[in-house]
Design a protein around this nucleic acid. Sequence first.
DNA 1: GCAAGGTC
Length: 617
Amino acid sequence: MKIVIAEKPSVGRELAKVFGATTRKDGYIEGKGYSFTWAFGHLLQLAPPQDYGFIGWRKQHLPMLPAKFKLAIRKIKTKDGFVEDPAVRKQLDTIKKLFDEATEIIVATDAGREGELIFRYIYYYLKCKKPFKRLWISSQTDEAIKDGFRNLKPGTDYDTLFNSAHCRSESDWLVGMNATQALSISAGNRTVLSLGRVQTPTLAMICARFLEIKNFVPQTYFQISIQLIKDEQTFKAVSVTNYKDKSEVEGIFKLVEDVASGFPTGGNITAVEAKPRKEPPPLLHDLSSLQQEANKKKGFTADQTLNLLQNLYESKLVSYPRTGSRYIGDDVFAGIPALIDNFTNHAEFGKQAKFLQTTTLNKRSVNAKKVTDHHAILPTGEEAYGLSADKQAIYDMVVGRMLEAFHQECIKEITKITISSAATFMANGTVIRSAGWRSVFNETEDDKKDEDNISLPKVAVGEQLPIVEKTLLEKQTKPKPMYNEASLLKALETSGKEIEDEELRYAMKDSGLGTPATRASIIETLITREYIIREKRNLLPTNKGLAVYEVVKDKQIAQAELTGQWEKRLEEIRSGASVKEFKAEIIEYTKTITSELLIAGTGILGKLEERKPEKVS
DNA sequence: GCAAGGTC
């Protein structure tokens, strides 16, 4: 019997289906000489400190450096504390039985670093010695699966990938467990002060933004706004210069030739620029972009969106949700026209689905090279009925985005009119000539103000138009906004660097903080630790969070770059570099951060009250 | 009691 092991049940079932294996057993599917089984993500984790004899949180245990790490069955939290997850225990027993009977083991966990680790931890935990082969595919279509099985690789080809995964795992344990205990112990051991490679830089970003806003000193500046009239249509223009000096702007303001002041000569049109702008459709959704949209449109937290999506996935209504790719391959694209046919009767989008049947589909989201473990989120085409309002909302975002992504460009006409009258003024107008993909949700750009979406009258250079009204505007510079879940998720994708360009940001995703599957839980962890709170839609630090930030802000553990440095080394290990050297460096760093925190933590004893920080005026 | 990673 050949045993195939997948990362999750959905993939195991899919593989069985392609082979025509249909006998459903408890925890696997049998047929055609194969058994298809699966894990549920990581079944095993590195054992906690107490399993190495580090009982209680004590300074003399630090730094904890196990000579050899142990694996333990994944735990779940119950009212009696943490216990082995019985479902995991049972599945491991099933896998063990199958491995014992196996003539051949085929590894079909996801094609990536963690997928490799999920299998290897099971394999070593069960002390299995049989050789194994690796299925390496990035698309789950029948053809891709069959092709993958014809080209199975020797399991040992992925030993270096396992090494890099193993290093990632143990390094996170060493740094996280030791730093957490060191800070908690030195701060009096009254509360858990957790630290980690991902959570601490995330906390640092939230705290730094909060303090930046709190310390922001607004600057006053002035603008002049005028209303002009042409063919009975009035339109607004604003001075190009922001004036800092009040008497200067008042002097200029008087000279603006408006009708009411008795100077009706008005404004001279000095330039008119009108050009079309093409806006390509947005890319399909990955988990993070969908979490951001759901947070903006519905106020859902990242965690809520993930749960709703998981639910839709389990009901077979959407494809795998924890994807970091916003692309599909050509094989999946081949099925898109048929998929769109399923939505021609959709209450909201039916008309656009019908339209797409008549036109060439946009292929911006089609790029097999940018599909990693999983492709972008798509509806499956199964009929959806009786969904809760929240689930329906998420489902519609998936369907709507699919229709947008394959739709036509939106063509706008951008008009800029330059006017001279004591100062230089500019009027901006945008007219949508062809809505294209924007007709799906029928929305204008969400970040831009409505007043920019106005049409301007036809004017020509040299014309003089009456100015019917002028206003002196006193304005203040504004700080950046507080992070909310949407902006934090976006910032995590690029480790806090602000990159507006969608494609460039996408290219940086490998150096982001956390992964699509873990970002929601990072936010929840910071809330559980009472480091941050949700206030309306914003994420604000507590005094406890700020106190921890003060202690660690200049240390490596609070820098997003730490992940980037690790990733570089892990990639070298994957291509064959020595593991020893990296491990030695991590142990050195563990010793350093532990001793630093044992000293620095004593200073925050009095600052841990869990009330909110004072309001920012 | 504690990390980050994956998923029911």
